[in-house]
Design a protein around this nucleic acid. Structure first.
Lengths: 174, 174
DNA sequence: CAAGATTGATCTGTCAATCTTC
DNA sequence: GAAGATTGACAGATCAATCTTG
């Protein structure tokens, strides 16, 4: 993390490099550590208790929130931050386990709908309590309501900024 | 994320399930989204600009902070939140690329020291500016100094809680 | 024989085609 | 031909042995 040289030298591109100062550095490292540890812990909990990966669980959870327990593959990919390719492989595996089905959209055959089966729903229902308990134990119960609000606010701003910077805008300088 | 049933029903283990309320749910989802998006963006940046994974970069960065550019495999695994097995495979690959070397600890042959080569150090130096710029762009520059302090504080507490809950303590009820 | 590290089999993710439907 | 989705080959991660050293 600490760059090998300090104090705004010159980058390959010719511009000055704006390094992180010690506080920024410490914040970045603390945040990175917390997110990795939390993710690792939840991944292990789900694997151990439900034999599901984090993404498998959350893909099924998103489907369960839809009225028809159905989403297009591309929508589900978007919502879960997965590539379409990754999701396609993953859905095929979950389909093999009987938790999901796929069927072409009747109105437009280019779209494929992924849908949670009754068995998938039961699997999710059986897996949720232990997962929720872990989220509560490791994150929610550590913070006071006011702090949760702050964390949510900061998180939403970070997400918004990343999304902004990934979409260069309708009339960016080409 | 949303559990299929609501309001503290009974879990398989017999205890009441304490679901997340809407605010807690929203916070958890916002935080999860932000961390996934940030991690994905940084992973892509490093792959694109330096042909390194996030873990590869950070393993090298940790080594660069040591006086002798050296750490034991087990220490490096700990510091980077990687399993020893994962790190072993990864170090072998980086060794093949000439960025790291491995050598047994002279004083105790059970320990293996991983150390950054001069070439690895130059690779890191060349890769750092673009990576730091991305961290700044996506995270640091979005937040005011006071907010960075809050984020750091919350992150450190979350990390501490996870570490506490993973180590059951010296005399836990077996 | 316990701790540190590695290995190999298997599973998962990525990336670059390819296929399908409109 | 463009968008949505899949595929297959390859790279990377995981897990359960196995190996090594003190």
């Amino acid at each position: 993390m600490t760059p090998p040289a300090r104090k705004t030298p010159t980058s390959p591109s010719g511009g000055a490099v704006h390094w992180l100062d010690d506080d920024e550095q410490a914040t970045w490292r603390a945040f990175s550590n917390a997110t990795i540890k939390l993710r690792t812990a939840l991944e292990h909990q789900l694997k151990r208790d439900a034999d599901l990966s984090y993404l498998e669980y959350h893909a099924m959870a998103r489907l369960s929130e839809e009225p028809r327990h159905t989403l297009r593959m591309s929508e589900l990919a978007e919502l879960t931050d997965a590539s379409l390719s990754r999701l396609s492989h993953l859905v095929k595996r979950l389909e093999g386990r009987g938790f999901l089905r796929r069927e072409p959209d009747p109105t437009d055959g280019r779209f494929i709908n992924a849908l949670l089966t009754p068995r998938g729903f039961r699997k999710l229902a059986a897996s949720a309590p232990a997962h929720v308990a872990e989220v509560r134990l490791l994150l929610i119960d550590e913070l006071r309501p006011s702090e949760l609000r702050v964390l949510r606010d900061l998180s939403e701003r970070i997400t918004a900024r990343i999304e902004r910077s990934e979409v260069p805008g309708p009339d960016s300088p080409t």
